[in-house]
Nucleic acid binder design. Structure first.
Length: 621
DNA sequence: CTAGGGTTAG
């Protein structure tokens, strides 16, 4: 059971007096008649005792002039019939005529739960949340009791506005009157908590539901994925199937997203096989999700296969494919595809531009990127936002034009975020711009003083320049502020299982074997000309320890494990990694050469393909 | 006459 303390309910930071009143009333003042939820299915009492056919009432939907029909209904008295009045009310709300709707609503003296839910839903659809909540409050007061139709509407509003506070409040009401056991109310509650990032409460509601249907499972799967537990999401999917719930396309989209987040190819192909087996045709959304999944699992080729096989494609599908090329370092292909897209009269949106600019910046296509950036607003009517600026800062950064990047940032009135300053700080590290780096780090820490990553980056900039005193200062500051860098992990998938490594890790069950093999491998690499580059360990420590740290980097452990456990010819995929350090990059390159293996590595949001000595990555470590 | 879940960036 969830706890609703006074503090939770009333400590609103953004609460207007009205809001406060509403909250107070809903919890303490309103007398909701005690009634059992089974009421939901009871027959609605009609005002004049005349039953109109369903067809007649539903045919009203197609009336062109609803005002005229409404007038006619008043004249001939049919407006007295509640289902008819409700239907007209509904049509008004569907057509956005909120004023007419609310006028009619007031006219209905004997409102039934349908009238209330239509009106409340109307306000919700129109985005008039104040009236939505206040009408809901009136409804609770009216003595009609809550119903299974209205609750999902208001909970949905809480979800869409990320209003966790109101959501908890309504949940309390739901709980008090026993509606939490209803599938629809429960499902939207799960979704509400999940979208508000309170996965624990989402899970609690889910676990306590006595009945779950496909939608319930789907939102819970999506919730786990969104909150960073894609593994759990896939486990839930298996459980769902065991319990005999048959997935549909929407469920599969969520599962596909879990695989994309996980970045595990084996899981991805399993899920795709499943989709093929149950003969789901790929609609735009499912197809696009698959493109994204394959791309994020390290195969831009399979993503392209899906893309080419899709009958219907929209701007999202094209953007997904362009983004896929982008983080696989295939900037030119991304650009080509972008132009094909334009040729098909698909209008790019802001996300398309983020994807294509990102692709340009990560492939060093500076001129092309800048050109696109300058034309996006004039030619395509897409106003650049922070994300676009971040790509351009990155573009300038790559070209070494840091001052241009800085000027760009300073000249814009856009609200600067950490990503924007972070891109510039990253560029400062690459180009050894210590003074600028200090300045940028200051802005960055002003926005986000608790992110250890920023301190590390700054300290690395100092270290690269040999300014150990400053390095120590930054580290001192970190200690003082009790910040710790979260260790980087590398995940590798072998035989359908995921193995995780961190630097110096000995927790793996094959640890001994891995370290032995790594030693042998290092010997071979030495012969091949690989020399560990300790410059990438920017700690102020002695060389021997640096080497030790370097040789036990998580990527190296993962790759070695991959070599042990896979046969020759198998692609080694590392699709989840925080950052591949420069030396590991070289290491992997040489490993791929001497072992004749294809190795795909994901570093942050970028993939590197190492194959037969050819490396698609044009990076400058 | 009314109610819940889906795609691209970050």
């Amino acid at each position: 059971m969830l706890k609703f303390s006074r503090h939770n309910l009333f400590s609103s930071k953004n609460g207007s007096p009205f809001r406060f009143m509403l909250m107070l009333e809903s919890v303490t003042l309103i007398q909701i008649p005690e009634q059992t939820p089974k009421n939901q299915d009871s027959q609605i009492k009609q005002t004049p005792n005349f039953q109109f056919s369903q067809t007649f009432i539903s045919s009203l939907t197609h009336c062109k002039n609803i005002f005229q029909v409404h007038g006619q209904m008043i004249v001939n008295g049919l407006i007295q019939n509640l289902p008819i009045a409700n239907k007209i009310l509904n049509i008004y709300t569907l057509r956005g005529a909120l004023q007419s709707a609310s006028a009619l609503f007031c006219e209905i003296t004997e409102k039934n739960p349908v009238s209330w839910s239509v009106m409340i839903g109307g306000y919700a659809k129109a985005g008039d949340y104040m009236n939505c909540y206040s009408t809901f409050r009136e409804y609770m007061r009216s003595g009609n009791g809550l119903d299974n139709y209205t609750l999902p509407i208001v909970i949905r509003v809480c979800r869409d506005t990320l209003d966790l506070q109101m959501g908890r409040l309504i949940h309390a009401v739901v709980f008090k009157y026993g509606f939490h056991s209803f599938v629809i109310v429960g499902s939207i509650l799960v979704d509400m908590y999940a979208k508000c990032k309170v996965i624990e409460d989402a899970r609690k509601v889910f676990d306590e539901m006595c009945k779950r249907d496909l939608v319930t499972w789907t939102v819970m799967i999506g919730a786990c994925t969104e909150c960073g537990n894609a593994h759990e999401a896939l486990d839930l999917f298996d459980r769902m199937k065991v319990e005999g719930v048959v997935p549909d396309k929407i469920a599969m989209v969520n599962v596909v997203n879990s695989c994309a987040k996980l970045g595990v190819m084996q899981k991805a192909t399993n899920v795709h096989d499943f989709i093929k087996r149950i003969n789901f045709s790929l609609d735009v959304i499912l197809g696009t999700a698959l493109i994204d999944m394959y791309a994020k699992c390290g195969s831009v080729e399979l993503a392209r296969e899906i893309f080419d096989g899709m009958r219907e494609k929209n701007v999202v599908s094209w953007s997904a494919m362009i983004a896929a090329y982008g983080y696989h370092g295939e900037g030119q292909k991304a650009l080509d595809l972008f132009h094909v897209m334009l040729g098909r009269n698909i209008v790019p949106n802001k996300i398309t531009f983020v994807s294509i600019l990102y692709a340009c910046s990560h492939s060093g296509l500076v001129e092309e990127g800048l050109h696109l950036f300058s034309s996006m607003e004039n030619e395509y009517g897409v106003k650049p936002d922070v994300k676009h600026f971040t790509c351009v800062v990155d573009l300038f950064g790559r070209a070494g034009k840091l001052d241009k990047a800085l000027k760009l940032i300073e000249d814009t009135n856009l609200k600067k975020d950490t990503g924007l300053w972070g891109a510039l700080l990253g560029a400062c590290r690459i180009h050894n711009r210590v003074e600028l780096g200090e300045k940028v780090a200051e802005s960055l820490l002003e926005l986000e003083s608790e992110n250890a990553g920023h301190y590390v980056l700054l300290s690395n900039i100092y270290a690269k320049d040999g300014r150990w005193k400053e390095v120590a200062k930054v580290r001192e500051l970190m200690t003082h502020r009790r910040l710790k860098k979260i260790p980087g992990y590398t995940w590798i998938e072998v035989d359908n299982k995921i193995h995780r490594f961190s630097v110096g890790d000995h927790s793996h069950y094959l640890s001994n074997e891995i370290y032995e093999e790594l030693e042998i491998l290092n010997e071979k690499l030495k012969v091949a000309g690989y020399v560990p580059d300790t410059n990438f360990v920017l700690h102020d420590i002695d060389e021997e320890l640096k080497l030790e740290l370097l040789n036990t980097h998580s990527e190296k452990l993962a790759i070695t494990f991959g070599l042990i456990r896979t046969t020759k010819g198998t692609t080694i995929r590392i699709t989840k990694n925080l950052r591949v350090c420069g030396d590991c990059h070289t290491f992997i390159k040489v490993v791929s050469l001497i072992t004749d293996r294809m190795i795909v590595v994901r570093d942050a949001n970028r993939f590197h393909h190492f194959r037969e000595g050819a490396c698609s990555c044009r990076d400058y470590w």
